[in-house]
Simulated scan of single mutants.
Amino acid sequence: MEERKNRTFGLLGKDISYSFSRGYFTEKFKNLGFTKTKYVNFDIPKIDDFTTVINNDDSICGINVTIPYKEEVMPYLDKLDKTAKKIGAVNTIKFTKRGNLKGYNTDVVGFEKSISPFFKKHHKFALILGTGGASKAVAFALKRNNIKYKFVSRNPSSKKEISYQDLTEEIINKYNVIINCTPLGTSPNVNMCPAIPYQHLSEKHLLFDLIYNPELTVFLAKGKEKGATVKNGYQMLEIQAEESWAIWNQSK
C-alpha cells in the first residue's frame, strides 16, 4: 500500500485516554512505513462538538467511535451501511470521496469472530449486560448464531430487558452465555464488576467481557473461579480495527 498524502484517522469518544486504538494504529502505520498518516483521539465532552472536530481538519479520512457516541453520532452522518442501520449503532465512519460521512459497524464482526469458537451445543441463551451501542452489535451477532438473548439493565424499559435484581439462580443456569457490555471494571476502576449472582456460575458458562484493560477483569476472574470459560475483548478490538482499516481504504 502506497502512502500518497497526509491522512488523519482517529477515535471519537469521551474520556478515552485508556483506549488501545491510538497505540494499535500508530504501531501499524510505523510498520507500514507511513510517515504522513496519523491516528489521534477526538476526546469530546458532548456529541455537539463532533462538527467542530471534522470541520477543523480536512485531512480526516476515517473515525472509529466508542462510548458513549455509537448511537448519538448517527444523526450527523449522511449514509449508513445496511448492517449499521439494522443494528442501530455505528463504530466506524468513512469520509467518502464525495465528501459524505458513511457509518459502519465493525463491532459485530469483531465480536462474532472472537466468541464463536467458544460456543458449545448447550449455549442457546445469553444475557447481555448493558444496553448501549456495543450491546446492539452483540445482540445482532447472537441472533445470527441462533442464540436467544435478554438485555440486563439498571432501568429495564422493554420486554427484552430485565433488571439485575431479576437474575435468579434459574435464569443464570439457563442463560449460560454472559456478555459484559458495560464499562464496569475498566482501568483504572479495576475493582468494579456488574452486579450478577456469580455464585450460580459453573463450568457450563461462557463469560465474554468487551473490556480488555485489565486483561482479566473481576467479572472474568469470578467466572474463572467457578470453572467458566472466559474471554476478554482484545481480539474483538483487533478484528474490528482491521475491518475499519479495510473500509477506510476501499476506493468507494
Rank of each mutant, 00 (worst) to 15 (best):
T168V: 04
K150M: 14
S157T: 11
P156W: 07
L167E: 05
T168G: 04
Y175I: 08
V152W: 05
N155E: 09
Q165D: 12
I178P: 00
Y175L: 06
N155K: 11
L167H: 02
I196S: 07
N191R: 13
P183H: 09
R144L: 08
Q165G: 03
S163Y: 02
K159W: 05
T182N: 04
N145L: 14
N191V: 09
L167G: 07
Q165R: 09
R144P: 00
T168F: 04
P183L: 12
E161M: 14
N173L: 04
F151T: 01
N180K: 10
L184S: 04
P188H: 08
A195Y: 01
G185W: 10
I179R: 05
N191Y: 13
M192K: 09
P183F: 12
I147R: 02
C193R: 13
S158G: 02
M192H: 06
C181K: 10
I147C: 09
L184A: 10
K148L: 06
N191W: 06
K148H: 04
D166N: 15
N173R: 05
R154H: 08
S157P: 00
S187Y: 15
Y149T: 01
K174A: 12
Y149H: 06
C193G: 01
V177R: 07
S158A: 05
R144K: 11
S153Q: 00
M192L: 07
V177S: 08
K174C: 12
V152G: 01
N173P: 01
V177F: 06
R144C: 05
I178N: 00
I178E: 03
N191K: 14
A195R: 13
E169H: 12
T182M: 08
S163W: 02
E161Q: 15
S187A: 15
L184E: 11
I172D: 07
T186D: 02
V190F: 07
P156T: 08
E161N: 12
I147A: 09
D166M: 15
I172R: 03
L184I: 12
C193L: 09
I178V: 06
N180T: 06
P194T: 15
E169L: 08
L142P: 08
A195N: 14
S163P: 01
K148A: 05
R154F: 02
E169Y: 05
L142R: 04
N176Q: 04
F151Y: 13
P188L: 06
L167Q: 03
N176D: 07
I172M: 14
K174I: 12
S158L: 08
V177A: 09
K159N: 12
Y149P: 00
A195H: 10
T182Y: 11
P156M: 07
N146Y: 02
I171N: 01
P194E: 15
I162A: 00
S163M: 01
K148T: 05
K150F: 15
N155G: 03
Y164I: 13
N146G: 02
K174P: 11
I162D: 00
Y164S: 14
N189Y: 09
N173D: 07
R154K: 14
A195P: 09
T186R: 13
Y149L: 03
S187T: 14
Y164E: 12
I171M: 03
K159V: 11
Y164F: 15
Y164P: 13
K159F: 11
N191I: 10
G185N: 05
Y149G: 03
Q165F: 05
N146T: 04
E170P: 00
N155S: 10
